[in-house]
């Protein structure tokens, strides 16, 4: 499984819905990713608390990403949802717990050192996304970064910024800082694909090679897309859609996406999707029947005794 955890969903507000035109472009981007060999893709909703003040109270209306609109990719890609909170103050963390119920991945993009420190020490996050196109908010300390990685919070950077020639040098310098601070562990690289720049996406082999030129060893660089990315996804699943620390996987390529879960929950509780649920819906048909028959037999045995 090769993951791309950052495809920007072209919506800036919780209440607005994606336009037809943007949806077409997004689908183009997804099919390009598919052709380049990616299997797991996370759609990223970027939320900045300064611009969007109002958050819907109802948990079910919280997720603006509608996976059901992407029916074409049912068998082709595994699609997840993600939120990135662009935080410049610790007071903006209050809604994180709410987001964790709805999104598969919860990410913070800190804009100053204090936010970064608090996020690492207090919050239960999956990823910390760093804006590599601009100067980093603070000097990346080994202690800070490694304590996050040990907790299971990984750092993300986008190769989108590398392809854009105006931000290239700054991005390379920042990535080098991150590699040094994290001792080349616990990083995730994603495309940051934006619907206006569909050609800013590369196959992961090319990115791995470029990271080798920058100064990361080959094995670690490919882990950025495989092991560590899938660990982040698994973490998110364990937080939201698990039952006693168990998640559902498929036999061929790892984690399954929301599609099955939403359909199962729609069966049992119509109108509710993306909520916490247990894995009982996945029991095999035959096994279900077996269980029923066994229970029936038990009941009959009881009756006969009476």
């Amino acid at each position: 499984m090769i993951c791309d955890l950052n495809v920007i969903y072209p919506v800036t507000d919780f209440t607005t819905r994606i336009t037809e035109k943007d949806l077409t472009k997004l689908k183009c981007g997804l099919s390009t990713l598919e052709q380049l060999g990616y299997t797991h893709v996370a759609l990223n909703f970027r939320y900045s608390p300064q611009l969007v003040k109002k958050i819907p109270n109802n948990v079910n209306e919280l997720n603006p990403i509608d996976v059901t609109q992407l029916q074409e990719f049912k068998e082709r890609l595994k699609i997840f949802t993600r939120i990135t909170v662009i935080a410049n103050d610790t007071s903006q963390f209050q809604h994180i717990a709410k987001f964790q119920q709805v999104f598969d991945l919860v990410t913070i993009e800190p804009t100053n050192e204090k936010v970064l420190q608090t996020a690492i020490s207090n919050l239960d996050l999956d990823l910390i996304s760093m804006d590599m196109a601009n100067r980093l908010p603070c000097y990346m300390k080994h202690k800070t970064v490694c304590s996050a990685v040990e907790k299971g919070i990984y750092f993300e950077f986008k190769y989108n910024d590398l392809i854009n020639s105006s931000t290239r040098s700054m991005t390379i310098s920042n990535i080098k800082q991150l590699i040094r601070a994290s001792r080349s562990r616990g990083m995730v690289c994603s495309s940051g694909l934006d619907i206006d720049h569909l050609h800013f996406v590369r196959s992961y082999h090319d990115v791995v090679n470029l990271l080798c030129v920058i100064g990361l060893d080959n094995a670690r660089a490919s882990q950025l897309f495989k092991d560590w990315s899938s660990k982040v996804l698994l973490n998110g699943r364990l937080r939201v859609k698990s039952f006693k620390q168990t998640v559902v996987i498929s036999g061929d390529d790892g984690l399954i996406d929301n599609r099955l879960e939403t359909s199962v929950s729609a069966e049992s509780k119509p109108g509710v999707s993306n909520t916490k649920m247990d894995a009982s819906g996945y029991t095999h048909e035959k096994r279900k029947l077996d269980l029923l028959e066994r229970e029936k037999a038990k009941l009959e045995a009881k009756k006969q005794k009476l």
């Binding site: 590398l162 050609h199 090319d206 090679n209």
Partner: peptide, 17 residues
Amino acid sequence: SLFFITSIGGQNCIFNV
């Protein structure tokens, strides 16, 4: 260097190795 190429002949492109 192939990674950094984004357009060819005025058309946006991806060089895929």
